[in-house]
């Protein structure tokens, strides 16, 4: 746990382990862990903007999800992101939603 902010270490998540070395969790494509988190945030935001949300990295430890009105919530990993996004927007986050697919295709 971080002594300053009190944030607990994040639990391992399956999306963190597809790099060349699955034990260390090194990101694929030679990216650093920091670059990989920014890449993740960038791609996630292309989807989340459909719901009026933005995601940001927070100290390389977790992510902060924000609405346009400034409400925010901390999420640890991608699996935790979607239920929180639904609670904040009241909308269902479904990748099979034709409107979302069309929006993602336009990206």
């Amino acid at each position: 746990m971080c002594g300053l902010c009190g944030v607990l270490g994040t639990e391992a998540h399956w999306t963190d382990a597809a790099g060349p070395d699955s034990r260390s969790g090194a990101p694929p494509g030679g990216r650093t862990r920091r670059q990989e988190r920014l890449h993740r945030v960038g791609l996630a935001n292309k989807v989340l903007k459909h719901y009026g949300l933005t995601l940001a990295d927070w100290e390389g430890n977790c992510f902060v999800l924000r609405t346009r009105t400034g409400r925010s919530a901390i999420v640890q990993h991608l699996t935790a992101l979607w239920p929180v996004a639904e609670r904040m927007t009241g909308r269902r986050c479904d990748p099979l939603d034709p409107q979302l697919i069309a929006a993602v295709e336009r990206e």
Partner: peptide, 17 residues
């Protein structure tokens, strides 16, 4: 596949379905 894009998709798909 870009692993990150795939992870975003699969986590969202498994969340919804």
């Amino acid at each position: 596949l870009d692993w990150t894009a795939f992870g975003i998709w699969l986590t969202m798909l498994l969340h919804a379905h």
